[in-house]
Design a protein around this nucleic acid. Sequence first.
DNA 1: TTAATTTGCTTAATCGTTTAAGCAAAAAAT
DNA 2: ATTTTTTGCTTAAACGATTAAGCAAATTAA
Lengths: 344, 344
Amino acid sequence: MTKKKTTIKDIANVLNISAAAVSKALHDDSRISEKTKKAVKQVAKNLNYQPNHLASALRSGKSNLVGVIVPRTNSNFFSSVLQNIEEVLNKEGYNIIITQSNESYKKECDNIDTLLYTQVDGIIASMANETVELDYYEKVKSKGIPLILFDRGENDLNVDYIGINDYESSHLVVNHLVDNGCKRIAHIGGYKRTRIFNNRIRGYIDALKKHNLPLDTELLTESGLTIEDGREKMYQLLNLKKRPDAVYVAGDYAALGALQVLNEENIKIPDEIALVGFGNEPFTDMVTPRITSVNQHSEEIGKQAALTFLKYNKEKVVKQSLNKIILSAELIIRDSSNKKALLT
Amino acid sequence: MTKKKTTIKDIANVLNISAAAVSKALHDDSRISEKTKKAVKQVAKNLNYQPNHLASALRSGKSNLVGVIVPRTNSNFFSSVLQNIEEVLNKEGYNIIITQSNESYKKECDNIDTLLYTQVDGIIASMANETVELDYYEKVKSKGIPLILFDRGENDLNVDYIGINDYESSHLVVNHLVDNGCKRIAHIGGYKRTRIFNNRIRGYIDALKKHNLPLDTELLTESGLTIEDGREKMYQLLNLKKRPDAVYVAGDYAALGALQVLNEENIKIPDEIALVGFGNEPFTDMVTPRITSVNQHSEEIGKQAALTFLKYNKEKVVKQSLNKIILSAELIIRDSSNKKALLT
DNA sequence: TTAATTTGCTTAATCGTTTAAGCAAAAAAT
DNA sequence: ATTTTTTGCTTAAACGATTAAGCAAATTAA
């Protein structure tokens, strides 16, 4: 069973024409007769011919492959972005290669190397939490390959970016909480070095100011936003002399950890403490009480990222500049913060 | 900024040696002097040389790429399998390309074409629910590329398979429920045409028999196991004249749907109805009450799948046969079924 | 009828790397 | 001192496709 793969030459031999003619026939070149085209395609089918991507990509300099780097696939947000990127790019004849960084800078660099090595035509990425050095991304740029960032981006790279308005989102959340009578609003934030989390923190601070609420530094913390982080920070907040009456968490997983602690401590949600998450992960709608969260429009982000790449796909010399597409987020109000609903 | 990529030839020119010598130096060929090797590597670094994978793969016939097909990445099970496959393969110099079928047969076929086209050295896959025809998988086999299936497999393909003992798992579940005093145990199963779901159903039936419990066909249903399916089937069960006192659901998402209905209808879990899911998705430990579920050992499945591929990676002619690695599953007992804990 | 154009192919070079074969110089063995 | 072996390279042919250039035959134009 030493199945030799069929090549263009095999087809040429069968029909007694040149390999070049076969190649052209398969690409519907106008200089090949309809008769020959039909014959070639028939033989190709008979011999179960599958073009060798490596050869054509090597020759033409285009792999029709786009690399995507995400911190993890195991999240509704990223998985949904991936699906939408794929959908848009498939239609244009591109295929995507998905790699995960697991939030590790080292892994992210490896991923970039892998993708460059695979000769992808472009890279769409969301940076790992850890990433602060941009040398590897500069490498991508210096190869002349379009680089598109989403969600976790970086202005300094001067490339296209698609994301939501994190600063504005925090305002949405705080407005909503104030609207529900909350006066001591805590924020369990992500690490400030990551731009999106920094923006959420800035938005939180400015929104408090807007409502003439004092900023209590005890109520503002940074973490990796895992479930465990959420639990830990929630315990810290409960141990304060003056507990908050609302907690706005910059990530749903951490919000879940906070929820667990509140439930375990028999604290009434939202009456005693209201809770808001971020990301609108499906489980926010599954737990008790359901968690209010911010929808990040993953579908649109995926689509826009893919379309942005396609903008470059024909250009020979890629000349990118900081070009941001900022979508406005949407607050999904659920039981964990909706005191008003309880009043009626 | 028309950055021409550095090739092996550029390095050769700088040092006034042949391209072949450079290639060999980079691969630490024993017939190249240490002095030359050092010089080559230095120049390679200076010129920021990145090997062209397309060229080397084309020439050597090995791409060092392994394709993985999963129904979706947005599930803890698959995401964890992916991570472990990647970890094992990366160590051996392989990279993985992840594709999603979204449970669609059509998409799965496209994925296979993409992977073959990319000239992967092997394919590791878990089949879509929809998949019944095996022609596309036969195509992979006929190309002489190793094919490894996990979780959702198919005996008829005669290839390696890694999974858990689904039949035995159902016994674990039923034993546990009987042990907790349940006598009318329902099963919300997956579609029988998918082997794993069929095995869970067979295990359920045989386990009832073992415990001398009658099999009531009203209590046994098939579905796609989405959250919505779980809700629907749970309503059906609640509308029966004789309600079950336990429900064993073949998937965690459907179990969650069932849980929502039970909670909404104010039915006491596990007292009135006990609930058991399958898959040990993280949310089973997040909801109220926490759902008893079956741990499928995703880490081990991923590792074994990768190792199985590596077994073939040196062989010229791949000769596969039905070779199953069956791991035994583990029942994670939580509140939703643990009546005994309540008694003490 | 002859020139110009179009059609339908072929030839050969090329993409960047690997690798079999070969060959001179150096080192080791006799 | 001569033969054998080893070392360190070079040359050239591949891998399978694409593509620029070219050329004869068929068609159209003048």
